[in-house]
C-alpha cells in the first residue's frame, strides 16, 4: 500500500515532467527517420525500420532510465521533499522500492507506446507485422530495469553528475563483458585473468538482453533463453536494489 502510494506519486512526477516528453518526442522522431532512411535502401526496407526503431527504443529508454533514475532520489534530497515522507510511518526500503517501481511503470508505458508506434509505421509501409521482434522489446525492457536499478544505486551515495557517469559507464561496459572474457582467455597472466573474470561475473552482462538482430532476421529464439535472460535480469535488479537499501538506510539527510 505504501510502496504503491510512492510508486504512483513517482509515476505522476515523471509523467508531468517536460523533460520526459522531450525525450519521447525525439524517440518518435527517430522512428519517423527510420522510415525515411528505409526509402534509401535497396532490398528489404522493413529490416532498416525494425533495426533502427528497436535501437531507438533502447537508446532513449536508457537515457530516460539513467537521467530520470538518478533524479529519483537526488531530487527528493535536494528539494527536501524526503523530509515529509520519511517522517511518516514508512520504512526507507519502502520509499526506495516505491520510487523504483514508479519509474519502471513509466518505462513500461514508454516502451508500450513506442512499440505501438513502431508496429504502426511498419504496417503502414510494409503491410507486415513482425511479431517476433516483440521478444526483443521484452528484453529491452528487462535491460532498462537493470539500468534503472543501477542508476538508483549510484544516486543513493553520489552526486547526480557522478551517478549519471557511473550508470552510463556500467551500461557501456555491460555490453562489452563478452570482450572482457575473451581478453581473460587470451592473457597469459593469472592475476589479470582473475581480475577480468571477476569483472565479467560481477557486472551485468547486458549483451544477454540484445536479441534485436536475431529477431529482425527472424532467427529462432529458444524459449528457455528468453526465460533465463528475464530471470537473470530480475535477479540482478533485486541484488542492486538490496545494496541500495543497505546504503540508503544509513544515510543522514542534510
Amino acid at each position: 500500500m505504501k510502496v504503491y502510494a510512492i510508486a504512483i506519486n513517482t509515476f505522476k512526477e515523471v509523467i508531468r515532467d517536460k523533460i520526459f516528453y522531450s525525450l519521447v518526442f525525439f524517440a518518435l522522431l527517430l522512428l519517423g527517420a527510420s522510415v525515411l532512411l528505409s526509402t534509401l535502401t535497396l532490398g528489404e526496407r522493413s529490416k532498416i525500420i525494425e533495426d533502427l526503431s528497436l535501437s531507438g527504443i533502447e537508446i532513449f529508454g536508457v537515457i530516460i532510465s539513467i537521467f530520470v533514475g538518478i533524479g529519483l532520489v537526488n531530487k527528493e534530497l535536494e528539494k527536501k521533499t524526503i523530509y515529509i515522507i520519511i517522517s511518516k510511518p514508512i520504512k526507507r526500503w519502502q520509499f526506495l522500492l516505491g520510487k523504483y517501481l514508479g519509474l519502471s511503470l513509466v518505462l513500461l508505458s514508454y516502451v508500450a507506446v513506442m512499440t505501438a508506434c513502431y508496429m504502426f509505421f511498419l504496417y503502414m509501409y510494409t503491410n507486415k507485422l513482425p511479431w517476433q521482434t516483440l521478444m526483443a522489446v521484452l528484453l529491452i525492457y528487462v535491460e532498462l530495469l537493470v539500468v534503472t536499478a543501477s542508476a538508483v544505486l549510484f544516486s543513493t551515495f553520489s552526486t547526480p553528475t557522478l551517478s549519471a557517469s557511473y550508470a552510463l559507464a556500467l551500461y557501456v561496459i555491460g555490453h562489452m563483458t563478452g570482450d572482457l572474457r575473451g581478453l581473460a582467455a587470451k592473457t597469459g597472466q593469472a592475476g589479470a585473468r582473475a581480475v577480468l573474470n571477476f569483472i565479467y561475473y560481477f557486472l551485468p552482462n547486458l549483451e544477454d538482453f540484445n536479441i534485436k538482430a536475431r529477431t529482425v532476421h527472424a532467427m529462432p529464439i529458444p524459449l528457455d533463453y528468453l526465460l533465463m535472460s528475464i530471470s537473470y535480469g530480475l535477479m540482478y535488479v533485486m541484488a542492486i536494489l538490496s545494496l541500495s537499501v543497505l546504503i540508503f538506510q544509513r544515510r543522514n539527510f542534510k
Binding site: M1, K2, Y4, A5, I6, N9, K12, E13, R16, D17, K79, K80, T81, Y83, I84, I85, S87, K88, P89, I90
Partner: peptide, 30 residues
Amino acid sequence: KRKIGFLPEQPYFYDYLTAAEFMDLSGRLF
C-alpha cells in the same frame, strides 16, 4: 510515527501535485 505530525523547515512539496493529491498521498503513507 503513526501518532506524530511533522512540518519541516521551509517545506518544499511535490510541485506537480495538486493540494488534494498531496493530502491524499500523505494519508496513504499513514
